[in-house]
Amino acid sequence: MKAGIVVFPGINRERDIAIALERASGRKPRMIWHRETDLQSLDLIVIPGGFSYGDYLRCGAMAAQSPVMESIRAHAARGGHVLGVCNGFQILAEAQLLPGALLRNASLRFLSMDCHLRVERTDTDFTAHYQRGQVIRAPLAHGDGNYFADDATLDRLEGEGLVAFRYVEPDGAATAKANRNGSARNIAGILSPNRRIMGLMPHPEDLVDPLMGGTDGAPLFEGISAALGSDRPAA
């Protein structure tokens, strides 16, 4: 798998993603400066977390207008894989590569703690190494993770099985208490219709090493790495 990590000014979890990808694939991902446009050789493009352009406009709004986004759009149109985590998810939503928007957390405060996620489907390259219904732990760290979409969009996402992860209690129950940021229908992560673009708010990349308190995030990177193989050409 050839993976690239897009670095917008203000992104700050690019090294975390790089560690997780290298751990899973044995291969160092390429860092892509936001002015680059040639992404043809890549199998997976990751947009990491952080505060692109300081989040001074709406989160992700500035980055979504960046030159590299056109290349990411083309990569997606070719059937390429794209993963957006946290600010990356916000950017994908702003770029309309995924539906909906991420609003201020319901508490109007930044949230940083572990949350529990239920894996909603496993027939995707991102989640194939999990069990369906499995509850995993992942750190949250965001001020704007409150997923919003109109009812028709939410119904479509549910109907087409495009919800990847939901906030749940440790026992798997999708309660209001587990849904700390106030997301519609406890949604933590969603997929594109071809299931090759995924956006999620929590940070599985920060839980891939037992030293840091767990490895619940590792199967995500192992799964995508196995699916895209070591020598697989760009799709």
């Binding site: 975390d16 405060r109 030293l211």
Partner: peptide, 30 residues
Amino acid sequence: AWVWDQYDSTVGGQTVKRPGAADAAIVKVD
């Protein structure tokens, strides 16, 4: 916890002991 829960303590991926987990915070050298 109300205070710590508003500070990102995991960015960098090296935080071995987060706030409240040990008498001193432990941060690994990448």
